[in-house]
Structures are given as C-alpha cells and as structure tokens.
C-alpha cells in the first residue's frame, strides 16, 4: 500500500516536472538554418546539483536556486532575413503558449511577434514567466518556472553578469546599444 502511494507521489512529481517543460520541437527544423544557437534546459535535478556548490555560489544564485524549478532558453540567430516563415513561428507560439499563462504583452507585426506572459500557480500565485520574441533574424524563447517575476529579474541588474541596466520606460532605448555591447564583452 505504502509502495503504491510512494509510486503515485513520484509519478505525480515527475508529471508535474515534465509538464513545466515547454515544447520547443517547433524550432528543430529551423536550427539547421541558424548561424548561432543557444540551448539551455535546466530542470530540478540540475538546479539541485548546482545548489550543491553551497556557499561558493553567489548569494543571488543561491536564492534563485531555491525558488526556480526550471529554466529553458533557446535562441536562434540567422545571418539574413527570410530564413523562416511566420507560419513556422506560429507553430512555436501555439506549442509554448499553453498552461496557466497570463499574457502581459502581445505584439504582432508583419515579420514577427512578441509575447510576454506570466505563469500562474494553482493558487494564482506567481510561478515564473515566458518570453517569446520573434524577429526577422532572431528567435528567442525564455521560460522560467518558479518564483521569479520580471521585477525580480530587473533587480539582478549588475549582478551575476547581468548588465547593469535598469528596466523601465525611461532611457531604455538609449541604453539598448550599450547593453548589447556589454553582453558581447561578457560572452
């Protein structure tokens, strides 16, 4: 009886963890055309492993490791425009915009779209966010599952290698160039 209960709990937790993972198979076909790709998929096991470093981790990272359950990032960069059609990227939108998401920003253009959505937990609490940004030469998907919202992300400016640029309406467009430059130096 106990064995069955333990098995059920394990199965439920595995299903929950699997459910948090967004489906990025729609980007598989485009990977071959991309000149540069970034693929990060960190689940609970990897984050637990990272937490094993203990006090060697930066305090911010220790805090995030306790609250974030999954981190998925996929970026594709293309040398020239027209490497993909909007229909192809629509598949991506359909496959990732599922679950308890509350759309914050949804912008559609003729050559791309942007979606920023907050993830809600079962009790309506904040449970992460999702960013999908499709531009003529770049596709980026960022999915965070856990207690990290955009304002917490903004607070990381200047820490953990995140460029020290405050998110906010003022001066953002002016500083965009320097953000890219700073990141290029970091990478």
């Amino acid at each position: 009886m106990i064995k069955k209960q333990v098995f059920a709990v394990l199965l439920m937790s595995w299903l929950a963890a699997a459910a948090q993972e967004i489906d990025l198979r729609a980007l598989k076909a485009l990977e071959a055309k991309a000149s540069e790709t970034t693929d990060i998929n960190l689940g609970p096991e990897q984050i637990k492993l990272m937490m094993g470093l203990g006090s060697e981790l930066a305090p911010e990272l220790q805090g995030l490791g306790k609250t974030v359950e999954r981190v998925q990032v996929k970026t594709l960069q293309f040398d020239k425009e027209g490497a993909y059609t909007l229909a192809e990227t629509e598949k991506l939108r359909e496959s990732v915009m599922t679950g308890n998401l509350v759309s914050l920003i949804s912008v559609k253009k003729k050559n791309g779209f942007t979606e920023i959505a907050m993830r809600k937990g079962p009790k309506g609490e904040n449970a992460g966010f999702l960013i999908v940004n499709v531009e003529p030469t770049e596709i980026a998907v960022v999915s965070i599952v856990g207690q990290l919202d955009l304002s917490s992300l903004a607070k990381l400016s200047g820490k953990l290698g995140v460029p020290n640029i405050q998110m906010g309406p003022a001066e953002t467009s002016k500083k965009k160039g320097s953000a890219k430059q700073e990141e290029e130096e970091l990478f």
């Binding site: 981190v71 940004n133 980026a140 960022v142």
Partner: peptide
C-alpha cells in the same frame, strides 16, 4: 548556464521594452 539564461532573459525583456 543559469547565469547565461538570466542574462538572455534580461536582454530579451530590455529589447521588448
């Protein structure tokens, strides 16, 4: 990788903004 993911997330939010 965690730090890189945060940097990319931060960059994307800035770009959208």
């Amino acid at each position: 990788q965690f730090k890189l993911a945060l940097r990319i997330a931060h960059r994307e939010v800035l770009e959208v903004q």
